[in-house]
Amino acid sequence: MSESSNVFFHMRNIVKSYALGDEEAVILKGVCLDIRRGEYLSVLGPSGSGKSTLMNIIGCLDKPTSGEYILNGSLIDDLTEQELARIRSREVGFIFQNSQMLPKLDAMKNVELPLIYAGVRPRERARRAEEMLVKVGLQERLHHKPNMLSGGQQQRVAIARALVTRPTLLLADEPTGALDQTTGAQIMGLFQELNDDGNTIIMITHDLKVARNARRMVNIIDGELSESEEATLS
């Protein structure tokens, strides 16, 4: 089986630049990255290194200035806003630093949200949302609103919401950034379990300790990506 026919996540020479007055600010300088199905990768970089920009491109929120990006067989290149939205809906599950639940909706409704946009019918939505909440250990909290949930519980809801569409790729941006150490460790444990179940995870962080939870680690500095020398868990 040749590599190119089985490309799952493939980034080649991704460049992202913004016009800043007369000058051009290059944020990503030819990033290359390949990921296999079921991998657990952390992208480690200080602030201003371009890791947020990289995350936006990986998550199909933004398009690269040049380069080639293939996610699960779809070429993310010159797609319209709508097509990008479809890709996000089908392929990517986002987990943000502060879980970003909609405050007026309970846990179930928050988890159902991506399914609404994917056009899934109500009964099926409820079934899948409940299944995911049980999976992240929130079976007792299905109808709690965000203000009645702890930070760790909210992050679990966010994880359930990211997983509920059965995405190809789980994309986490500083998932433990707003959590205390114990809760952060619990969330990392959950990530480990999810990865053991076969989920592909990319986690973006500035924290080396957090980054070490992943099986594979890459560094991003000044818009350039390099494979980390540091041995990671296996």
Partner: peptide
């Protein structure tokens, strides 16, 4: 704005 951004991130199309 944040709510809209979030909804877009989790797959809401502009038309939706």
């Amino acid at each position: 704005t944040v709510e809209i951004g979030l909804k877009k991130a989790i797959g809401a199309e502009p038309a939706q």
